[in-house]
Design a binder for these strands. Structure first.
Lengths: 113, 113
DNA sequence: GTAACGTATCAACATTTCTTGATATGTTAA
DNA sequence: TTAACATATCAAGAAATGTTGATACGTTAC
């Protein structure tokens, strides 16, 4: 498991980009297929029932987000999960679920000056 | 930690909806603020530098996704993180990072019939 | 009461994202 | 070489999402 790591405000944009890549059903389904290991595009295509260019589009979104890597072999392209990005996503979600280290005392009641 | 739980294909849509709520910088930043506990809208507004109606829009997206709950007190509205939804997100990400229980043997090489 | 406030909602528009069909590129088979 | 194939990319349109300013609604202060 990754160190302490309080997610900083600056990370919000980065996190948002990562989650955006996971914000589409087809892309999540593709990721789920890739849990089993490397898959070639044609397999994903068949199983997901997605048109060729559509799938290609979504795979690129995942790739741009760093969530998958691709490998060419002859005329086939194989995609697989890249664990690092998932680890980042995992950490961000965990941090959101965790109160940050306290520096001061909690403000109790009172709002807006 | 939540049980075994292989994420099923059917869950892809649900997961996507959850991640969509986290796919915007302002929303992630709001969630980060809420880690400290309940916050009233005006506080979020000040700290995030977001126009009133804009913030209201984003808070509603988070609420619709179940990621936050709101509470009215007089003219103020307080938002806080709802841990359950975060737990679900957490589990989904973890599952994506984990090979599923194997039912058959891994296919080695060969592609597309 | 009336006014000022905090928040939500709405309508219009801007922007982004997705889908589709067409075409391009590289690869193997004949 | 030519043809069939697997995949990527592009352009155009469709759909979804985000932004802004205006307005509505309930609440507290006067």
């Amino acid at each position: 498991m990754t160190p302490a790591a309080d997610t900083q405000p600056t990370d919000a944009a980065k996190a948002a980009r990562l989650f955006h890549a996971l914000s589409d059903e087809t892309r999540v389904a593709a990721m789920q297929m890739l849990r089993n290991g490397e898959r070639c595009v044609c397999e994903l295509q068949d199983e997901l029932g997605a048109a060729q260019s559509r799938l290609s589009f979504h795979l690129r979104v995942l790739k741009d987000a760093g969530l998958v890597t691709d490998r060419r072999d002859g005329r086939w392209a194989y995609y697989s999960i890249s664990p690092d990005a998932l680890q980042v996503a995992h950490d961000v979600v965990r941090d959101l679920a965790t109160p940050p280290a306290r520096r001061g005392l909690k403000v109790v009641g009172g709002c807006c000056g």
